[in-house]
């Protein structure tokens, strides 16, 4: 398990450092394309973020409860 953990940490670090390097090299010449700047100005994008985050947290809570239920069931079956 610890090698896996170390590998994961290494992976994350590699991504971060790689992207910083690439950022420095990026050029900023681009034709303007219409984006949802208005939505950001009004700040309402946070509402969407909150909604999606809550949906995801809800699903995760459901999975955690399911996980616990199955653990309980596993113990019960083993004690039989």
């Amino acid at each position: 398990m610890s090698t896996l953990k170390r590998f994961l940490i290494l992976l994350v670090l590699a991504f971060c450092s790689g992207s910083m390097f690439a950022q420095a090299m990026q050029s900023a010449t681009q034709a303007p394309v219409e984006m949802a700047t208005g939505l950001y100005q009004s700040g309402k994008i946070y509402v969407v973020v909150a909604v999606v985050a809550i949906i995801f947290i809800g699903i995760v809570t459901y999975l955690i409860l399911l996980d616990r239920k199955i653990s309980k069931l596993e113990k019960e079956v083993q004690n039989k």
Binding site: Q30, P32, V33, E34, M35, I45, Y46, V48, V49, V52, A53, F56, I57
Partner: peptide, 15 residues
């Protein structure tokens, strides 16, 4: 995944 949901909506993306 939670980080993706938050950063995915809020960070700048190329136009």
């Amino acid at each position: 995944v939670l980080y993706t949901i938050i950063a995915g909506f809020l960070l700048k993306v190329p136009a």
